[in-house]
Structures are given as structure tokens and as C-alpha cells.
Write a protein that binds this DNA or RNA. Structure first.
Lengths: 340, 340
DNA sequence: TTGTACGCGTTATCAA
DNA sequence: TTGATAACGCGTACAA
């Protein structure tokens, strides 16, 4: 079928191409009569307007590219889902940019904006995939962009996340309230701002409780289950073993729990484990995992709404928007074991 | 910056727009000298070709839309990831279509092809989001399309999946080999072909073992953790309680395990639980979950490759491509408990 | 309310 | 190897 275009319809309906266009984009401007006339022809031939023509003309692609380090992480998947819904409601589609942490791919997807394939960027990575000119204010060099989960360390960017400092502090405060004083942390990779903020919260809580830092109790993980196992192993080698471990995400907490249990420790009787994220499965591991809940849907919605605002040309001030976290206390945490 | 186009570059480099175009799309046809000359201007001005113009002209969007019921399911996320990688290598981008099972959204995303926003469809839903004309062969009415995970029940479609009948049969055979004869199944929703095939495998295995069917042992779930809990509850109400439960996905298996344990049953001493999918967390629940491994990456790769073939215009015969499953035997299954 | 005419940025065709 | 020119399918001033 030789693709039929707006002017074929126009000819058959005996109107001008402009009128056919109006039937689709602003039907209010067309009289009832011609509206029906055109629609009839459209239905008969099964004509569908070609968006590329329109996009070229309007200089909008109708796409938003979501740059995500790893779509298989439940946290990211949950956020993406909300984002897509919001995008669709506004007539936008989501181009998926799972970068697997590779900078080259981040660049590739970011370039879609400069190539006109996308109108804005939702960025969940931890670096800015642009060449930035330091002489100019950053904001002016960027396309419409929102950074989720505080990946980027800059004040000139629109960001959405939970308050990672406060959330981590609350988690550790809770452990302190259960009597723990040897509290370890399994962190994310070193250069990730969100992880660094959680470290800060961890330290602040310790300080508030008058607990001295012990560097051996802070071990660096990679946010996956396996590294939770590895880090747990390291922690057990310390002479004065921790009585509680705060993991910076649930995956590592699950790995840590498994290792502790394999070593014969009872959770939470011998050691408490706390996670971060509250993924679906946190409730269903044994024992069920105490963790910090992140409102994924709300985060996603906030991200897409802030981006849509920018795409509409509204001013959106830079800086972080904080959404409320919730401490989920389940069965992997308890009071500090009695001293032997 | 008033967007600069190919002819601005052409003017500044003192060549024709056509030559500039060739520099990007077929540099071989351009002499070294003019190549450098053009590239220099391009670099100086930071010109990036606008894909929409090209797309309009070539009548290709360079996009593939992936229609997925639920991106937050680890199985889907794993497949998507592989798909995107393959797409990117071939110069395509993935438009994400998380439909949340809503037919209207499936249609919306399917329409992107007719609107020229996408060139092909990867479909993981369980129905065809098109109006089909029964008078004509189905295949001719469809755009380039691959159906993953045997969602659709038609021979005229290109499909990729594990052999669900054989996989389910193997799982049940294994349970039989451990001495179980009261083997329950927690299935997926009734109208999903992949679930129905697993039911068939379940029945075939029972038959081969000379075990009579007991309809009370087949309960219908919804593929989420909660429904695993619900179904497990139902199974415990049966007088002659099953000694093994084969769940059609890991989420339901995790829910079922939790319920059994809360009821004081030991797994696998009192009851064996088997899952399907082998999601990341299967290994880390307690006890670790025996399950049927699906090769997500391979499935994703096969899907995208078969679609790319179609997009290149090659003939791709309809029908299912089966990829190998693997029985993962962990600690949630064991020998049948002794009769009291 | 409708039609005319042009342009969005690129590629394809042909001729030079 | 390069250039001139005509599409691709649509939106939108502007005029009618």
C-alpha cells in the first residue's frame, strides 16, 4: 500500500490538506459538517497521520529519554513505571536508555536530544553525560533534564529523591534505639552522591549517639547481592564484630543476611540487618527485612512532572525535591544481643 | 541558537548540502579532502544532524516499541535489557510500552507503528493489540513483530520462549522422582497461553507417572507474590494436603513459601516448593528456591535478532523458537515426607 | 470556517 | 566525486 498522506484524504474529502490537518490537531476550528466528512474518508481508508512529518514541522519529537544504569534493579523499574504513565498522559513516549553504567552509552542516549530524537532527559545515572563548558552557568548548557535519586552532585540541576542524609540517619538512630553501638555500614560505590549522603547520615547518627567511628565498620559495596555477601564476610572478620549492619540497599542486605545465616548467626538475635529501598521481595525474605522505604511511584511522578514543566517552557528552579521515606521495621532487626 | 542545519554547514564549507549528508551517511563516497573540510566546519559549529529530517525522508523511525505487561517483573526487566543492547548495536532505540495489562495502552503502543513512530514491535503481552481481519492471513496484516514468552496463541506469529510444556513437565518429573505423588500446581491466570502450556506439562508428567489428577490441587494464581500466599492457603485447606507445590513463577513460590512457613510447616521437610523463572532473588530467599531457569538474556537476544531480520526485509518463518531451560535444584525441594 | 503556499531538515535521483 | 533539485508528510501563517 503506497502510504496515503494527508493530501490523499484531502482530495477524496474534497477539502484542503490544511483542513484535514485541523481535524486531527484542532478539531474545534472545523465545522461539524466538514469534520464528519473528513472523518468518514479517514475511517474508510484507515488513514493514520504520520507523526514524523508533524514532528519535523513542530520540532518536537514527543519522546523523553530515560537514562538508567540498570533497569533490572527493582528500584529503577518501579520509578520508570510511574514515569512512563505520566509521560503517556502528557502525550510523550519513553525511550529506554539502560546504560549498564557505561559512559559511552550514557553519551549515546544523551545525544538523542541534540539529534532531535528526544525533547528531554530523565537521568538516573551518577554523572552528567555532556561536555560542559565551565565558563558558563551549567543550567544554560543543559537540555530539559531531571535527575532522579540524587545521582549528580550539583546545585544547578533539578533533582528528585528522598533525603538520603536524613533517611540514613533515621535508620541508624533506630538501630541505636535498640541498644546497638557496634553498627556497621555497607555502602554503595564511593563516587555515588546518594551513597555518600547516606554515609553522612550514618556518621551524624553515630555522633549524636556519642558513638565513636570505627573505620573497619564501614565497608564499600557495589549495590548488588554478591557484594553484600562479600562485605558481610569482611565484617565477620573484625574482632569486635558489629551487632547491627546498615546496608545501603536491599540487595546487599539480602546478600549479607544470607552470609550471616550460613555462618550460623541468627538474625536478629545475633546480628541485626537493615536495608534501604524496600523492594518487593524485602517483605518475603527470611527473616523479613527491615528497611527504608522509598516512594518509587511518587519519585517517578515528581521526575516526570518536573520535566514536563520544563518542556512546557515553565521555569523550574534547580535543587533537590525531597520525598518522604518511611522506616519499615520488620524482623531482621532487634535489640542488641546481651554481652557474653 | 537558531538551529543550524545541513545547508548552513554546506554554505560554510562551500560544498552542497548533499555532500554534507554524505559525510555522515556514506563517507566512503566523499573524497578525503572534502571530508576533512566538512568535518572541520561541523566540529567548529558543533553541528549534529537532525534525525527527524532523515527519518521523514527514509521513512524509518529507528525505533522499536517493546510492549510489556509489567516492567517491574524481574523476568521482563531481564529480557528488556538484552533487547535494548541488541537494538542499540543495530542502531535502533527502544520505546518502552509498559501497559500494566491494559488493552487500551497495548493499542496505544501498537499504534506507534502505524503512526511511523516505530518500525517494529516486540510483544510480551498475551493478546494481539490489532484489529485483525479474519479473511486474510494474519501474517500479512501485521507489522514486523516478535512475540516473547509465548503470550499469543497463534501459529502465524514469530515467537521466542522456553518450551513451557517440556519445562513444566521436567519440573514435575523431578518432584515425582523425589517420591512426591500429591503434587499441586499454582498456575498463572487462565487465559495466558504460557500458563496453559505449563498446565499441560504438569498433567503430562502426572500421567506418565501414573498419578491421577486431583482438581483441587490445581489452583489459579495471578503471578504475584500475594496470590502465591492466597493459593497456598487454599492448598492447606485440602484434607489430603499436597507434599509438593509447583508454582508457575517465582513470585508466587515466594508467597507460598512464606505462608507455609507462617503456618509452621518446614520447607522442604514438610512440603516442597518449586518455582519458575529463576529470578535473582530465588537464590536468596530461605530456603533457597528450586526453580526452572529461563535464559532471559538469550530470549531477549533472540527476540531482537528475529525482529531486526524482519526489519532488514529478510523472510522470517512464523512459529516458536525454543530456548533451553534449566532445572535449578536448591533447598526448597526434597524427598517426600514419610507417611504418618 | 476554509484554502494557499511555504518550510521543517534530511536523503535520493539524476546529471554534471 | 560532487551539485542541483525534488521529494518525505505535515503544520501554520496568511489570505480569502
Amino acid at each position: 500500500m503506497a502510504t496515503l498522506g494527508i493530501k490523499d484524504i484531502a482530495a477524496l474529502a474534497k477539502v484542503s490538506p490544511a483542513t484535514v490537518s485541523r481535524v486531527f490537531s484542532s478539531p474545534d476550528l472545523v465545522s461539524e459538517k466538514t469534520l464528519h466528512k473528513v472523518k468518514k474518508v479517514v475511517d474508510e481508508l484507515g488513514y493514520r497521520p504520520n507523526r514524523m512529518g508533524a514532528n519535523l514541522r513542530t520540532r518536537k519529537s514527543g519522546n523523553i529519554v530515560a537514562i538508567i544504569p540498570d533497569i533490572t534493579k527493582p528500584v529503577n523499574a518501579g520509578i520508570i513505571r510511574a514515569i512512563e504513565k505520566g509521560a503517556q498522559n502528557a502525550g510523550y513516549s519513553i525511550l529506554l536508555g539502560d546504560t549498564q553504567g557505561v559512559e559511552k552509552m550514557e553519551r549515546h542516549y544523551a545525544d538523542m536530544v541534540t539529534h532531535g530524537q528526544a525533547d528531554g532527559i530523565l537521568l538516573f545515572g551518577s554523572r552528567l553525560p555532556f561536555k560542559v563548558n565551565c565558563d558558563q552557568p551549567l543550567r544554560q548548557q543543559l537540555p530539559p533534564l531531571v535527575n532522579g535519586n540524587e545521582g549528580i552532585d550539583s546545585d544547578e540541576i533539578v533533582k528528585v529523591a528522598v533525603d538520603n542524609v536524613a533517611a540514613a540517619k533515621a535508620a541508624v538512630n533506630y538501630l541505636v534505639s535498640m541498644g546497638h553501638r557496634r553498627i556497621a555500614a555497607i555502602t554503595g560505590p564511593k563516587n555515588i552522591p546518594s551513597s555518600n549522603k547516606r554515609v553522612r547520615g550514618y556518621y551524624e547518627a553515630l555522633e549524636d549517639a556519642g558513638i565513636e567511628r570505627d573505620d573497619r565498620l564501614l565497608v564499600v559495596g557495589r549495590y548488588d547481592v554478591k557484594s553484600g555477601v562479600d562485605c558481610a564476610e569482611k565484617l565477620l572478620q573484625i574482632n569486635e564484630r558489629p551487632t547491627a549492619v546498615f546496608c545501603f540497599n536491599d540487595d546487599m542486605a539480602i546478600g549479607a543476611m544470607q552470609h550471616f545465616q550460613q555462618q550460623g548467626l541468627k538474625i536478629p538475635d545475633d546480628i541485626s540487618v537493615m536495608g534501604f529501598d524496600d523492594i518487593n521481595y524485602a517483605e518475603y525474605v527470611s527473616p523479613s527485612l527491615s528497611t527504608v522505604h522509598q516512594p518509587l511511584q511518587e519519585i517517578g511522578e515528581a521526575c516526570i512532572n518536573l520535566l514536563l514543566k520544563q518542556l512546557r517552557g515553565e521555569e523550574v528552579p534547580a535543587g533537590s525535591r525531597y520525598l518522604p521515606y518511611t522506616l519499615m521495621i520488620r524482623n531482621s532487626t532487634g535489640v542488641v544481643p546481651k554481652q557474653k
